[in-house]
Amino acid sequence: MSDDQDFRRKPLTDPEVEIRRLSRRGFLWSGVSIAAGYAGYRLLNGAPKQGGLPVPFRKALEWNEAVWSSLQSEMLPAPTFPIEQAREPKVNGGLGMSDAFDPSAWTLRVEGLRGLSSPLHLSMEDIRVLPFTRICTEFKCVEGWSQIVSWGGVKLSDFMRKFALTGESNRYVYLETPDAGYYVGIDIKTALHPQTLLAYEMNLQPLAVEHGGPLRLITALKYGYKSLKRIGLLRFCDERPRDYWAENQYDFYAGH
């Protein structure tokens, strides 16, 4: 497809013959491209799956994570709102929220935190004495709806500082509901972020059971599916932990 000849001045061949030659070549290319595109589509969709997603898509999500997390050295705070704008968020999904649950008998089990010799079993009284923080941020569901909500509780970073005896931190945090029906992993940067709370208050009221009471995770830096309700187990670890939605086609990072 050289553009060096000026056909306008001096037609070297019959234009109709020439365009037919170019068309043949062009449409042959088109055919090959369409076939290649279709083959690529089959290859993408047919690839072995990882977490329910064909590997190339999983790799793309991990690539996106690497790009976007490298663009900020210090994690920015999520925008905050006046508390008057806070409303009740939708109660979405019942995973890990089995009916047989007695909040008064609830305790939090903590494992694996560096400097912690044996697992902790904490009651709400143990958690309430820790420094209190309230944030009012926009809660964003992966489905697309969002709601400004105020949350109160203890920063996960304050919690860790209270119980960890060394300055060295683990790489991940794993959280699980008491029935183990729902579980989530978050990276340590998110865990240490000042807008990541173990929350027991919502919109100035005690956290209701359907919203994850007595104690839930709240992170303003990720989709709602990372903010596990009704925490039964908090485990600190160095390997990327399992994660319910990351096993079911969604992104592990889910970072904002």
Binding site: L76, A78, P79, E138, S146, A220, L221, H256
Partner: peptide
């Protein structure tokens, strides 16, 4: 996609629901 990292863009579009 990045409502916290690109909060200024979110502001331009009138917030999360505005951008959607």
């Amino acid at each position: 996609y990045k409502p916290v990292q690109l909060a200024f863009l979110l502001f331009v579009f009138g917030g999360y629901q505005g951008a959607r």
